[in-house]
């Protein structure tokens, strides 16, 4: 099974990918959060600098990268990459 998801990039991740959002087709599902992150890394190797320093969310719900729990994705699901902002 695969799904076509919409990935949203915030803050530094938008800068690194040059994108605010993109559609990613044929994402295997269910998928572990680690594999989902690796899939994004493959598309945008520059995201590597955010490794372990980023919040990943699926359908506006936090998923810990590294959790064994598999994530089930559906078409048009939102995946968000949210690095922290520190400015003020």
């Amino acid at each position: 099974m695969t799904a076509r998801v919409c990935v949203l990039y915030f803050a530094k991740s938008a800068e690194l990918t040059g994108l605010k959002e993109e559609e990613v087709a044929a994402v295997p599902t269910p998928i572990s959060s680690r594999d989902l992150w690796n899939l994004l890394l493959q598309r945008h190797p520059r995201l590597q600098t955010l490794q372990d320093r980023v919040v990943l969310a699926v359908r506006q719900q936090y998923v810990a990268i590294g959790d064994q729990v598999a994530v089930t994705l559906g078409d048009r699901d939102e995946v968000a990459v949210v690095p922290p902002l520190s400015g003020g």
Partner: peptide
């Protein structure tokens, strides 16, 4: 809990660099 490790310093953009 959210960010156990700090970002590498050269990846942090501040307001004087990045604008706001």
């Amino acid at each position: 809990c959210l960010y156990p490790a700090p970002p590498p310093p050269d990846t942090v953009t501040n307001c004087s660099d990045g604008g706001v």
